[in-house]
């Protein structure tokens, strides 16, 4: 009985702590999945032997026309599997999705052109103009990208989702 109460108190305190933490902007520490996003630029250099070397560097000096690579990293740090894992990332403001660059191992990728209300494969998306005419959506129409993991994310497992954008 005592143990049970202590467990409840401990759990309550834990929830309270998590609840408080959500107010100090560390929401990635709730639940069993830790999720982190980063933005990089691709640096292409020629090394001493004349080989072309590509590396990523945090995006710090981005100017219009530059390509920014967004990477969403996630891992299950809990003890139970996470099921039906769905990652969504809006295409950031002032950025334009670069066609064909969304990538995510073990995930089915779909896109939205209406802020995440509806989703589809690129060939399924149609833009309706004010006059009612329709045209196939292009990469610059995409507002959101979604990765649906095909399998459960097991404890200790990690994954990532990546896409490229061009600064307008």
């Amino acid at each position: 009985m005592k143990t049970f109460n202590n467990k409840i108190i401990a759990r309550s305190l834990g929830l309270l702590a998590l609840f408080l933490m959500s107010f100090v902007a560390t929401p990635q520490e709730t639940g069993v999945i830790q999720i982190q996003t980063s933005a990089d630029v691709e640096i292409i250099e020629t090394d001493a032997s004349g080989e072309t070397v590509t590396r990523l560097e945090p995006a710090s000096k981005v100017v219009p026309g530059d390509i920014v690579i967004y990477t969403v990293s996630f891992s299950n740090t809990g003890s139970e599997p996470a099921e039906n894992v769905v990652i969504t990332n809006p295409v950031p403001r002032h950025m334009e999705y670069v066609d064909g660059t969304a990538f995510g191992p073990g995930a089915d990728i779909s896109f939205s052109i209406d802020g995440g209300q509806s989703w589809g494969m690129p060939e399924e998306l149609v833009v309706t103009a004010a006059d009612g005419s329709e045209r196939p959506a292009v990469a610059s129409d995409y507002t959101d990208i979604r990765w649906i993991l095909r399998n459960e994310l097991q404890p200790g497992a990690q994954g990532f989702a990546r896409f490229r954008t061009r600064l307008q």
Binding site: A25, P27, Q28, T30, G31, V32, I33, I35, Q36, T37, S38, A39, A59, S60, K61, V62, V63, P64, V68, Y70, V72, F74, G78, E80, P81, A82, E83, N84, V85, V86, I87, T88, N89, P90, P92, R93, H94, M95, L153, A161, L167
Partner: peptide, 30 residues
Amino acid sequence: IANSAQVDYEVAGTPVSQSSNILVVTVAEI
């Protein structure tokens, strides 16, 4: 330019929704 990803999933049938850190990229002057 801010970016934040979201993850939705279930643990033992309980839905969980979380947001990532908010990453800000500042546009430089060309």
